[in-house]
Design a protein around this nucleic acid. Structure first.
Length: 486
RNA sequence: GCUCCGUUCGUCUAGUGGCCUAGGACGCUGGCCUCUCACGCCGGAAACACGGGUUCGAAUCCCGUACGGAGUACCA
């Protein structure tokens, strides 16, 4: 049997980190079993689904690099892959279900059900089965009132047990699982129908989803069994419920929380590799003493049985640390490639990039690569190299602190020390400054180089000074030293 | 309320009956390196929710309690 898994977000709002984690685990599971990863859009709720959100879902998957074998924009043998385009399929299945004894027509309104529940003092919420065995007269009476029925699934008696891929044996007593609606009174199919039907029609073998859906599983399994009996489906898939990702305050990460939004991480300079690695760690570990790894390594090592069932709290600091490791694993060329759009966006580089700038960037990369945790930190570190001389400005606070009278004297002496240098190289610059400032003037290195650093880079914190001066070049360096010492 | 799921350092986790005086990572913290900031390196504080069993032996198995979470729609 070929493994077929799916990831099926509903396009309402912007994708969040739970989306990414569930997508990741499904993708990895598919890849490691050499199975098929299906991407499906659950836009049955016309009122809440938006095209903008759909674009965001697809864009998020592309950014993450989780490619799908079947789904929107790539097609496949089980399409279409947007539920809004599958209505006839659902209506057909619904008609078959309606002819069977697995379902019954229900004429009750929500208010009537609530009232009956309240009156009976029942502890169970949800539908009470009132219409399960309607007589012909009762039915006729409802129809005479021009009530439109909905189709309800008849939950079987007894208990229901499955082997959860993550949690082991899980059992529900079906008397606590009310008969559920499969469509609206206007005939629109609901998630309760559509999700299992698509899994059946698309031949899904394993359903890996968030724990928030655990309590819908005892409804889906009997429905799948019904579909099998009706010859609509070949099998009941296996289920695995992944731990939830919690935000601050121990609550499920909600869309209200800015930390929840996937694109926030992209826009703040995370690498998809880094975010994915961190997300993988929320519920799974590759080894006892290791937590940085590639997607390929995860595919190799992942086992759904090893997934930890407890909810995990999202920790931005650790996510950033993992991201920093991936940044350094990238290699200079690739890192440069990813940085260019960020630098362009920040106005540090032009579009297209001038040859001279490209060369300068290449030389500067080794200086900054080790200093970044996120791509967005690069512009501030590099802009002093690329800015037009006329636009170069010192950080006011840093200049005020370090370029006092004494500081200006140091800068002035530094200029004298390097202006006659024959070779404008890091080593020569360092030797000259060392001799003049530290040895001759007797200034402690950190005190000597601080003012010079501000003069050259504009800031107290910068890439290494001597290298920066070499890259900046003699003319610009001397100009900045002169400007800062006057 | 009811149902289900869960409970190892602050956080993410390793641990599947003896290898555990519980390992790693992030964070915190002391130090080294050092032209700043990082990186890197060395060190430290920090956890088996509680109570009963089972067993020669329990973080690991069972039961209960407490606590936390999720679900409880003609949303998905």
């Amino acid at each position: 049997m070929t493994v077929r898994v799916r990831f099926c977000p509903s396009p309402t709002g912007s994708p969040h980190v739970g989306f990414a984690r569930t997508a990741l685990y499904n993708w990895v599971f598919a890849r490691q079993h050499r199975g098929t990863f299906v991407f499906r859009i659950e836009d049955t709720d016309k009122a809440r689904s938006t095209e903008e959100s759909y674009e965001a879902m697809v864009g998020a998957m592309r950014w993450l690099g989780l490619d799908w074998d079947e789904g929107p924009e790539v097609g496949g043998a089980h399409g279409p892959y947007r539920q809004s385009e599958r209505t006839e399929l659902y209506l057909d299945v619904l008609a078959q279900l309606r002819e069977s004894s697995f379902t019954y027509d229900c004429f009750c309104t929500t208010e009537e059900v609530d009232a009956r529940r309240k009156a009976s003092g029942s502890k169970v919420q949800g539908y009470d089965g009132f219409c399960r065995e309607l007589s012909a007269e009762q039915r006729a009476a409802f129809e005479a009132e021009e009530r439109r029925p909905i189709v309800r699934f008849r939950m079987p008696d007894g208990s229901l047990t499955w082997q959860d891929l993550v949690r082991g044996e899980v059992t529900f007593e079906t008397r606590f699982v009310p008969d559920f609606a499969l469509c609206r009174a206007n005939g629109d199919p609901l998630y309760t129908l559509v999700n299992p039907v698509d899994d059946a029609l698309m031949g899904i073998t394993h359903v890996l989803r968030g724990e928030d859906l655990l309590s819908s599983t005892p409804r889906q399994i009997p429905l799948h069994q019904a579909l099998v009996e009706l010859g609509i489906s070949a099998r009941v898939p296996e289920f695995g419920h992944l731990p939830l990702i919690m935000g601050e305050g121990n609550k499920k990460l909600s869309k209200r929380d800015p930390q929840a939004h996937l694109f926030m991480y992209r826009d703040s300079g995370f690498l998809p590799e880094g975010l994915l690695n961190y997300l993988a760690l929320l519920g799974w570990a590759i080894a006892a003493d290791r937590d940085v790894f590639t997607l390929a390594e995860m595919v190799e090592a992942f086992d759904i049985k090893d997934v930890n069932p407890n909810p995990a709290r999202f920790d931005l600091k650790k996510a950033e640390a993992i991201n920093a490791d991936h940044l350094r694993m990238l290699g200079l060329d690739e890192l440069t490639h990813r940085l260019v759009p960020v630098l362009q966006g920040a106005g540090v580089l032009g579009d297209p990039v001038h040859d001279a700038d490209a060369q300068l960037l290449e030389q500067a990369m080794p200086l900054v690569a080790e200093r970044m945790n996120k791509l967005t930190e690069a512009p501030a570190m590099l802009d002093f190299l690329f800015v037009e001389e006329a636009d170069f400005a010192l950080d006011e606070a840093d200049a005020a602190k370090l370029l006092d009278d004494a500081g200006r004297d140091v800068v002035s002496a530094a200029r004298e020390a390097v202006e006659a240098l024959e070779s404008w190289s890091t080593d020569a610059i360092q030797a000259a400054l060392q001799t003049k400032l530290v040895e001759e003037m007797g200034i402690k290195p950190r005190l000597a180089y601080g003012p010079v650093r501000v003069a050259i880079t504009g800031r107290r914190i910068s890439p290494p000074l001597f290298e920066s001066m070499e890259l900046l070049g003699r003319e610009r360096s001397l100009g900045r030293l002169a400007a800062a010492s006057s």
